[in-house]
């Protein structure tokens, strides 16, 4: 009786959906008769392709046009063709390792800063993420709470992250207050080059590590427990089990984490911009900030130069993505 009632209610509630489906079915069958089954695949892809084209391909095309045209105007019809002038300006250097010898020195400072940041931030964050994931995967008290604690910063807006840490690290912030309590010398966290770089790396890790821990945690939980039990019965030490069982089986997740972290680190901007403004001097000026400053924020903007720089940055990201694909295929073959 109850079952029948449920069925009746379900049928009534789903009736509009069924009518809609039947209404759509008629033109769809007619269209399938004309386009055939392969044509229907293209038909269903069209909405996505339109959105992708509008928000990815068209801006990419406009970006390319900007990079070969000059002036401050935004309308393409008002811009004059300058060929590769912007790329020449960006790449003209006596010595690429010495930004001061380059015509567009700030671009090269930003590029080298970005490389330094990517190398430091990604390597430290991966090690930290693996250790954290291993701990959170173990039998610890309040495990769910600790997992939430590490994931929480990921939910925060980057601007909020930047501001919170700026308040804590500024001259009269809580960090210096703590040092003051111990009669220690205050540190200029955000105005001394080394400390400011460390702060940028640390804050960036704090903000993002939770996301990567989550991916690694999923990988760790997918490793069959019996492998560890067998190793334990064989008397394998924990460190050897980590190198021989955990790391190889975690590798696919680790690879995803490395590539995602690399791409994200190359695009570093928001929280570091809010935290340091790119300073002290230009020691935390990264590529995305350079593009933003040149294209939007400087007193006299240069959209063409910013577009050229963004294409160079995009080519770096393409190389990283291809490297990821190559690594994945190489690992699969192995």
């Amino acid at each position: 009786m109850i079952s029948n009632e449920k069925t009746t209610i379900g049928a009534v509630l789903s009736a509009p959906v069924r009518w809609l489906a039947e209404a759509i079915d008629i033109p769809m069958r007619w269209w399938q008769g004309i386009a055939g089954r392969p044509g229907m695949i293209s038909f269903f892809l069209i909405p996505n392709l339109l959105i992708f084209g509008m928000f990815v391909l068209v801006p990419l095309f406009i970006n390319i046009v900007y990079s070969v045209t000059g002036g401050t105007e935004l309308f393409l019809s008002d811009r004059s063709y300058v060929g590769g002038a912007h790329f020449n300006r960006l790449l003209e250097c006596e010595n690429h390792f010495n930004p001061n010898s380059c015509r567009e020195d700030l671009f090269w400072i930003a590029l080298w800063n970005t490389i330094k940041f990517v190398f430091t931030q990604v390597s430290v964050m991966i090690v930290f993420a693996v250790i954290t994931a291993l701990i959170l995967n173990g039998k610890i008290r309040a495990r769910a709470f600790w997992r939430a604690v590490f994931f929480f910063p990921v939910l925060l807006s980057p601007v909020v992250v930047g501001l919170i840490w700026q308040w804590m690290l500024q001259r009269q912030g809580v960090f210096n207050f703590i040092l003051f309590q111990f009669d220690a010398q205050a540190i200029n966290w955000l105005t001394e080059r080394t400390w400011a770089f460390g702060a940028a790396v640390g804050v960036s890790i704090w903000a993002h590590v939770g996301f990567y821990v989550l991916i690694l945690l999923a990988g760790l939980q997918a490793i069959p427990r019996d492998l560890y039990e067998a190793a334990e019965m064989d008397g394998t030490p924990p460190a050897r089990a980590f190198w021989r069982i955990t790391l190889p089986l975690l590798w696919p997740n680790l690879l995803v984490v490395i590539v995602l972290a690399l791409i994200r680190a190359v695009q570093v901007f928001d929280e570091v911009y809010v935290l340091t403004g790119g300073g002290p001097g230009t020691s935390n000026l990264y590529l995305t900030q350079y593009i933003y400053e040149v294209g939007f924020a400087s007193i006299l903007r240069n959209p063409g130069l910013a577009s050229a720089a963004s294409l160079i940055m995009a080519s770096i990201l393409v190389v990283l993505t291809l490297a990821q694909l190559g690594l994945t295929r190489w690992k699969d073959k192995k």
Binding site: L190, G277, Q289, E293, A297, S298
Partner: peptide, 14 residues
């Protein structure tokens, strides 16, 4: 005061 001029890059206003 270093914090005003040194702690930013580019032509940012502080």
């Amino acid at each position: 005061y270093r914090d005003v001029w040194v702690s930013a890059a580019g032509s940012s206003y502080r």
